[in-house]
Structures are given as structure tokens and as C-alpha cells.
Design a binder for these strands. Sequence first.
RNA 1: CGGGCUGUGGUGUAACGGUAGCACGAGACGUUUGGGACGUUUUAGCCCCGGUUCGAAUCCGGGCAGCCCGACCA
Length: 411
Amino acid sequence: MKLSQLFTKTLRESPKDEESINAKLLIRGGFVAKNSAGVYTFLPLGWRVVEKITKIIKEEMNAIDGQELFMPALVDKKYMEPTERWNLDVGYFAKSKNEKEANFVLGWSHEEVLTDIAAKFINSYKDLPFYAYQIQTKFRHEARPKSGLLRGREFMMKDLYSFHVSEEDLNSYYEKVKAAYLKVFEHCGLRTIYTLAGGGVFTDNFTHEFQVLADIGEDTIYVCSKCEYSENKEITKLKDGDKCPKCAGKISEKRAIEVGNIFKNGIKYSEALGLYFVDENGDKKPVVMGSYGIGVSRLMGTIVEIYNDKNGIIWPQNVAPFIVHLIVLNGKNEEADKIYENLQKAGTEVLYDDRLAQSPGEKFADADLIGCPIRIVVSEKTLEKNSAEIKSREQQKTELVKLTNLVDKIR
RNA sequence: CGGGCUGUGGUGUAACGGUAGCACGAGACGUUUGGGACGUUUUAGCCCCGGUUCGAAUCCGGGCAGCCCGACCA
């Protein structure tokens, strides 16, 4: 991608109505644009990051036999009434003009929809278990959207649902999902703490959350400094300074961002929507379910909160919009064009700042702000030595590399 | 949903109840190019609706929006 062709531009200043680091940097860098409180557009750069994250998620979901599908955003009233989740404050309701009352809610979770679909196909224990997920926009009426991508009214979410013959089978899959989630977050560069929590409107059971320690986070968790056993403030009896119930280490209170959660739903949804199967003995039983969420856009915001410095974002390799940010100075575009092409041929994703009017300082500042892992500078100075300069975003030191070795060096 | 604060170009600000101004930014042209260049020039604003007044960005009332704290939650 040539920067001269990218229709967005970086902003020198932060918008006045944003407080959080992720919102300021993502808007300044041209990753997102704010439409309303808690509603954002993902611009080309930001969308690339989203795609990197969803790629990681899909790989791990597919690895635990998740089948990807896509459900509607318009969710019919008939699905939500049986579980008494139709008229909740969380909903944005929709109706056509000739309708008197809303007959749809913009989907804020899809247990009911998928359960109803499953009932069309699942008859026998032989049809179970199965796992299905989607990555989709969710709509939730937030009383108070805040902190950029961390808490929106419209946001992207990966939701996985599992269907089992028994509680035992659900439990074993629950552990698989846990492991897969830990991998997803690790691949995104985040260290998460597996935290025991409550289930809100989803389930009466205990649930688990994946928490990233950060002061901007809205959750308060109690974490063992030794074994990282953790409980959410919502449900815990622990307090700061207590002994860990697992290893007797010291518990401390921390703020954290919840980037994912996993729930055991049991038979709440299957009973309400009529999802039954017949077991080996010919007995009819309700299907046992679990649901598992990852806030994709929140994850993106969290990564920015964790990985930044005063100059901008420092994307971890796996989620960076581009691997290389190539800067040309002194109008040496002809030479830089070749490097751009060679890197692209080698499969490296390059953002090429080929602009002629911008000063070196502005180009460096933009590279720091956008935050690709590797910066390459081609200038008169480097070309005198048949070289280009390489610098990692997270380090200060630079290195001159011969043009002939450049592609291999990056790979 | 309660409480607080704030609403003037994209950003930051100024204007006694009486001409909406400045700086930065953004655009055009030219000159520049190793850490946000320079010159010329252009551009764009009083959140909305009422009221008071000869006259409202300014005073009053009511909305709306944004941010922050809390509650709730995912």
C-alpha cells in the first residue's frame, strides 16, 4: 500500500472528546473514525488490524473444530421471548414503519438464534457434540460508552457456541476453549489472567473471564501474585492482602480489561427453544450448551493500550497492519519503488511512504504513530552505501543493510 | 440510570449585551527533504429551540451532545 494513495491521513492532534490512549492513537493514526459515542468506523488501516486479529481467532477456533457461520443482526422477537431476554435494556429495537411495535432486536448475543437452528438438525446423540462460531457486529445499548474501542454500543465480537449430550462433555470442551483462548490472546501479544466471575444475563453458573491487567480496565479482579489464580470483584470474597485459596500466595487487587469470557449455559436455552436429542437408551433429553466470547474490537483497543509510547502505537508483529513501513527521502522514489516491489514479491506487507511533499520529520512521526514493527528508510545517505536503514519500532538503534540483502533480512 | 463538568472552524483559544478574531491544522502553488520545513494564498466556526432585548456567542429557560465519576452490565 502506498501512503500517497491511502485516503486517510494522520492527525497531528488528538480529538478533544477522547480521553483514552487507544481512542486518541487510533483516531490520530487513521485506524478508526468516530461516528457517535461508542460507534466507530474501521478505516483501511484499522480494518487490516481487525483482519489480522480475526485470522488468529479463526485459526484457533477451527483447531478446536469450530464451524464458522454467520447469523443475522436482526433478531426476531420470537427467539428472545422464550428465554425472557426480549425486553432487556441492553437492546436496540427495530421495526418497519408500518409496524406498531418493535419486532426485532439488533443482536446482542445469539444463543437463541443458533439454538433454534440447531433444533432443525439435531435429533440424536450421534449428532452431538458440535461447535459453531461467528464473527459479527453486536449491538448493545451502553448507558455510557467510553474509552474508545473498549466499550462501544456497536462492536465486533467472536461468539462460539457448543452443544453437548452431557455436562461432562461440556466440561471437557470448556477446557479446550480455555486453552484456545489463551493461545489467541498470546498470539495477539497479550498476557491474560483467567478469572472466575459471574454470568450476568447469560447464566446463573460461574463463568471465566480472560483479563488483561491495565489501569484503564473497568473490571476489578483479585489476583494471586504467585500462581495467578484470580476472581472478579463481582463474586469474590477475597480482598487485597488475603492469602490465595489455591497456593497461599498473596492476593492483590488489580484493574483489568475483560477481553474474553466463557460460559456454561447448561440447558437454559435448549429447554426454552426446544432443542432435544434422543440418547442411546431412546430417552429424550435437552442439549447441554456453552457459549464463549471474544471482543474483537475491544481486543484491538486493548492491544493499543498496552503497546504504545509517547510517539504512537507499537503493534505486535501478528496484528500489525503492515510489517514494514518504508520511507523514502530526498525524492529517491525510483530506488525505493524497487525495494517496495521486491519486498512485496517476497510476501512482506509494506506500507510505503512515497509522498514527496512531506518533510523527513513528518514521515518519521507518521511511522512512529502508525506503529508498524519495522521501519526502512531509503535516502541519499543510505544509497551512497548501496544500503537501506532498518529500525525496529520498539528500539532506538538503526542498522544499515545492503540492498541486495534487504529482502532476506526482513524475512 | 443518578451526579459533576463542558459546548465558538479539524485543534487550541479570544471577543463589556454592539464588526466573530488569532494561532496551529487542512487545501493550492512554488521552494525544500534525516525527526512534525519556508513563502504566497485559500479554507472553515458561535450545538439546537424558545425567551428577554433596539441588538445575544455573551443573560434566562428547555433540549441535545461530549467527557469524567458512580450504578448497572457483557
